[in-house]
Amino acid sequence: MPMLSVRDLTVSYGRLEAVRGVSFSVEAGQIVALIGSNGAGKSTTLKALIGLVPPASGQILLDGRDITRAAPAARVHAGIALSPEGRRLFGRMSVQDNLLAGAHGVGSRAVVRRMLDDIYALFPQVRERRSQLAGSLSGGEQQMVAIGRALMANPRLLMLDEPSLGIAPKIVAEIAGAIERINREKNMAIVLVEQNARLALRLSHRAYALEHGEIIRSGKGAELLADPFVQKAYLGV
């Protein structure tokens, strides 16, 4: 049984269908990428999975249990966490306080301390800047904090929305390496939404290309990297 099953998901904003009939699954320990142009429905799909927008129709199953109408907090408690597009940090709070905000309701202080240590090991720059205001960090450092805050919820399924957006190439490479480490060392399932299709396909075990709210291509990440249509549409080949 897949960890996450999405069946015929449709999401509408008024009369506009942003996502229509999307179906895919995520296995435990798998990185699944959603690629596509602006407005393809990628971020809306993530928002529906975490409960920030209600589906017009379709079903979302976590470990076979229907969570389609569950509140966002219940989904986080069940093991799903989202690092949103644009990072959405509390700029006037310290880096460490931003991280701790993600651990609300997680458990004992010892567990929180262990998770903090794990994040500081993953992102040494974040440890160095833990007392600084989050708003004073570079974009890349803020992205590391945003990912760390999502990890503080101790998820089994981590969703990342545009983690490379607006970040210097060197830092993008560091974040890509961190995503691989999270997946490998924690056996954590990851849903990755990325406009950098080459990066997303290189990292993913399985990938889906969306256009106008619909899936138009799917397969292993390596298969889509070699697909002539994907190369022309998303990779500039």
Rank of each mutant, 00 (worst) to 15 (best):
Q132E: 09
G58E: 03
V126A: 05
P84E: 09
R109K: 14
D117I: 03
G39N: 09
G86K: 03
R75S: 05
G102A: 10
P84H: 10
I60Q: 01
Q142G: 09
P55G: 01
G58I: 01
R87N: 02
Q96M: 08
L52I: 12
E85V: 06
L99Q: 04
K47C: 00
I60N: 02
T45M: 05
T45Y: 15
Y120L: 06
L62S: 05
G36A: 08
L151D: 03
L34S: 04
R65F: 03
S94G: 15
V32Q: 10
E128T: 12
A73F: 13
I119G: 02
D66A: 04
A48V: 08
L89G: 01
S43H: 09
L151P: 03
M115C: 00
L133K: 15
G64D: 06
A56F: 07
H77Y: 02
S37H: 15
N98R: 11
T45C: 14
S138G: 08
G86F: 04
S94M: 09
L100E: 06
D117T: 12
G91N: 13
I60A: 04
G139H: 08
A71Q: 13
R114C: 00
G91V: 11
L61T: 05
K42R: 11
R109E: 03
Q59W: 00
L122T: 07
R109H: 13
N38T: 05
L137A: 03
L137P: 02
H77T: 02
E141K: 08
A146Y: 10
S37L: 14
A110P: 06
R75Q: 08
Y120D: 02
V53P: 09
D118W: 14
I35A: 07
F90E: 03
M144H: 06
G148N: 11
R130T: 00
S43P: 10
R149E: 01
L116A: 04
I35V: 14
L52T: 11
Q59H: 09
E128D: 15
L52K: 12
S83R: 11
V126H: 06
P55S: 14
R69S: 14
V145C: 01
A150E: 01
I50A: 01
V95P: 00
D97M: 08
S37N: 13
A134H: 08
I67G: 04
A153R: 07
A101V: 13
Q143R: 10
D63W: 06
G58K: 10
I80P: 07
G79F: 05
D97Q: 15
N98K: 06
Q96R: 15
R65W: 08
P155E: 00
L34N: 08
G105K: 13
V95I: 09
A48F: 03
